[in-house]
Design a protein around this nucleic acid. Structure first.
Lengths: 163, 163
DNA sequence: GTCAAAGTACTCGGATAGCTCGTGTCCGAGTTGACGAGG
DNA sequence: CCTCGTCAACTCGGACACGAGCTATCCGAGTACTTTGAC
């Protein structure tokens, strides 16, 4: 893969975070799924992952739902991606250099091999790019693309459907 | 996932390219698999992918095998990764903004959404990092890690097992 | 009118099937080099 | 001795099972509001 395909739920989770950043009150998973046109149960599953990662907080009961635990400007895209797809790096070195007739004994492998170093550097560049963008940035970008109406529409829809 | 896990065959393909860069004569897939301690048939499958991408050339017959089509310094790690895992980007936008009660009509979506832009930028940073490293660089790095004996050992093993 | 308690409706959370894609393997088509017979 | 044809061995290439992980779903546990009855 490129980086291999990225889990599709990442997109839903990011949209959910952007939507949650527009509401001070809890929003149920079913409401988010309806707004985004995604499967309700599956959307809920990803929100659970965000909850485990400490990005959102869940509230039970009749007026329950999900809320962000911290300001949208303090939540990076990398945080969300790692919450959904796991924090382990995409490339894992199989230590080929230790195998085969020319295998190197493990005690000589104090440093990871050149291939793993290259992959790690690339992943670091990728992570750095994602860590530099916050959910607040995404909301602002989406709003500007729509001419400044998208976020207001979301807030209005959340209020309208809350009753 | 991070970027989700990367295909395991990428590592084998990179090692194979490094090994091929040390031989002017064709090296069969079975020989590469033996040197790397990897499954022969599966290794061959990835070499076929490299062949389709034009990175290696296959030669049939008794003294056949695989050879690099161009100097190792002209083959980037990105080339190999794309050959194995496909050139399509890891993140594909599902166009959530067009769905749901607040869906935006497609004719207004001339530009990809902010989330897709962020992901594309991150992927570009990743690709750039991988494009800046060549197979020749990997060979040099591996050689230095071993104290300057690894590549010579590989050349010696290839000559020894050729007969 | 106030309080308390039971009931109800709504929420999340984890456990459960289906399916695509990566992993691993096999056998057939094609080609090259070697060998032997003939000139 | 040289040439040509046949043979055999070795190579790649694509087609075929297996398994893990993502996709999608459901139902149970828990909580807050509501309602109802008693004081």
């Amino acid at each position: 893969m490129e980086l291999v395909k990225m889990s599709n739920g990442v997109e839903w989770a990011l949209h959910s975070c952007v939507t949650l950043s527009q509401s001070q009150e809890p929003v149920p998973a079913a409401r988010l799924a309806e707004l985004h046109g995604t499967p309700p149960a599956y959307t809920a599953k990803h929100l659970q992952a965000l909850s485990r990662a400490g990005i959102v907080r869940s509230t039970a009961g009749q007026v329950g739902g999900y809320t962000l635990t911290r300001p949208a400007a303090a939540i990076s895209v990398l945080d969300v991606v790692q919450a959904i797809d796991g924090g382990e790096p995409a490339y894992r070195c199989a230590e080929i250099r230790q195998r085969g007739p020319l295998g190197i004994p493990p005690e000589q492998c104090v440093r990871q091999c050149a291939i793993a170093r290259t992959m790690a550097a690339a992943q670091q560049a990728w992570s750095h790019a994602l860590a530099g963008v916050t959910v607040a940035d995404l909301a602002e970008g989406i709003d500007e693309d729509s001419g400044g109406t998208a976020m207001a529409d979301v807030r209005g829809w959340l209020l309208k459907t809350r009753g």
